[in-house]
């Protein structure tokens, strides 16, 4: 069969690849609020007054940054479900929580991305001049408002390059979920290449799609950075 038939013929694999690509995109996008948000939370907790909290957060970051992402996914994917299951058993069946593979993948990736992004947030927090915070406090704003109205609006701009890097890591890391059970882009390419014995074709198609996403991400990031830095020469 020609490559065209294999992709777009009556039994072509293009629709499955397309669905896989959508799953990959959804996976990556769904991780952003939890992963980046979790990272910010970690960054803030690392300067918490309690020593225990600081040590726990440092330990978390060191652990998940220091082990292979594949291993981290596996530990979270199975460990977390075992824990949830035990808890939901205890609460009875009204509270039976079920993680499908996609949600579990989102959580597992978020755990890793939170560890990565916390470092970016920390350096972003450091980049905000303490004078500003002191000034805002002197104006009588409470800590919460200082954070929400003075620190947070500037944080995004400073953190943008680092977060952009992590986003590209994230897009590529979604492929690891294919080794669990999620029919993402790489998994779809894998199924197709095994069913047709044409790995070169299907993995090249998958690589091309990832490449397009990466290049587009790069362009978007540049645009956002330029926009965010208007007025800061």
């Amino acid at each position: 069969m020609t490559w065209f038939d294999l992709l777009f013929g009556a039994h072509g694999w293009a629709p499955l690849l397309l669905r896989g690509a959508l799953t990959t995109a959804l996976l990556a996008i769904a991780v952003v609020p939890f992963g980046f948000g979790g990272g910010l939370l970690l960054a803030l907790l690392k300067s918490a007054p309690s020593r225990l909290v600081r040590v726990l957060c440092e330990g978390y970051t060191t652990f998940f940054r220091g082990i292979p992402d594949l291993l981290a996914l596996f530990i979270v994917y199975f460990g977390l479900q075992a824990l949830i299951d035990k808890l939901s058993h205890a609460f009875g069946d009204e509270l039976h929580l079920e993680l499908n593979a996609f949600v579990a993948g989102v959580i597992a990736l978020s755990v890793v991305v939170a560890a990565y992004s916390s470092e970016v947030w920390i350096s972003a927090l450091k980049a905000i001049p303490p004078g500003q915070i002191e000034a805002a406090r002197a104006l009588g704003l409470d800590r919460r408002r200082v954070f929400m109205q003075v620190v947070l609006p500037q944080l995004g701009r400073v953190a943008l390059p680092g977060l952009g890097n992590i986003w590209t890591i994230l897009v590529k890391d979604t492929s690891l979920v294919s080794t669990l059970a999620v029919m993402d882009l790489l998994r779809a390419a894998s199924e197709a290449s095994k069913a047709t014995a044409r790995p070169l074709l299907f993995y090249t198609v998958a690589a091309a799609v990832y490449l397009v996403v990466s290049v587009l991400s790069g362009i978007t990031q540049e645009y956002l950075e330029r926009r965010a830095n208007r007025g800061y020469v």
Binding site: A82, E98, A101, L180
Partner: peptide
Amino acid sequence: GVIPALLASK
């Protein structure tokens, strides 16, 4: 992961 997933109620 098939046995771990069963034991983890996936």
